[in-house]
Design a protein around this nucleic acid. Structure first.
Lengths: 99, 99
DNA sequence: TCATAATATAGTTATTTCCTTATATAAGTT
DNA sequence: AACTTATATAAGGAAATAACTATATTATGA
């Protein structure tokens, strides 16, 4: 539990950070905090166009952060990487509590 | 302590995330975790050119994440925003402990 | 005052990111 | 089969990032 100085750890960490470092993607991850949601539901909760959200979801998929499965008409998304859930929770603790 | 859904919180959070979402900047922040360090010391610990590190330090300064003071010849830098220290600590916990 | 050490800034270029519009695919319904 | 709903993809351009080289600034020491 010591250093964040192995190159591999730095890379994993910055990958996760880059994934979260965009307002729409952060909102997507917040929306998926607990639930598994269809894309259109994410579009409505988060705002912005269907195409734009779909592309951000694709980015998160590529980075192995969310996964999705088809259910009939729709695609259900959920957070795959538990580390990300911890980070999102931490972001909330840091940026939403006191001030 | 509930939602990360106020637009202002989202913006603050993504600013912090963007600041950390680069390997050199993350390393800089790790190096400054506890200490106040002169720029050249950061250059040596982190690697890359003096100019490059100086520019990344400037980015962190602009984003109000680190601050610096002159001491004779040198400029000493330290992390200004306590929230960032928490986030860095959390990154370590998440990416360096078990696996 | 000249040389050196520490840091910052300018100018340039390559790459990446982000968004938009338009279109494609896949499943469900009539 | 035609229509609709849900989602993905392609193509384009604008803007942001990142790195490099070279040069400027500031302080110290001879």
């Amino acid at each position: 539990m010591e250093l964040l100085e192995r190159e591999g750890d730095i890379e994993k960490a910055t990958n996760a950070l880059k994934a979260m470092a965009h307002p729409l993607r952060l909102k997507i991850l917040c929306a998926l905090k607990g639930d598994e949601l269809p894309v259109l539901e994410i579009v409505e909760q988060v705002g912005s166009s269907q195409s734009n959200i779909s592309q951000h979801i694709e980015i998160l998929r590529t980075k192995n952060i969310i996964e999705s499965r088809r259910e009939g008409n729709r695609i259900l998304c959920k957070v795959k990487d538990a580390k990300i859930l911890k980070l999102v929770a931490n972001m909330q603790a840091v940026f939403c509590s006191g001030n």
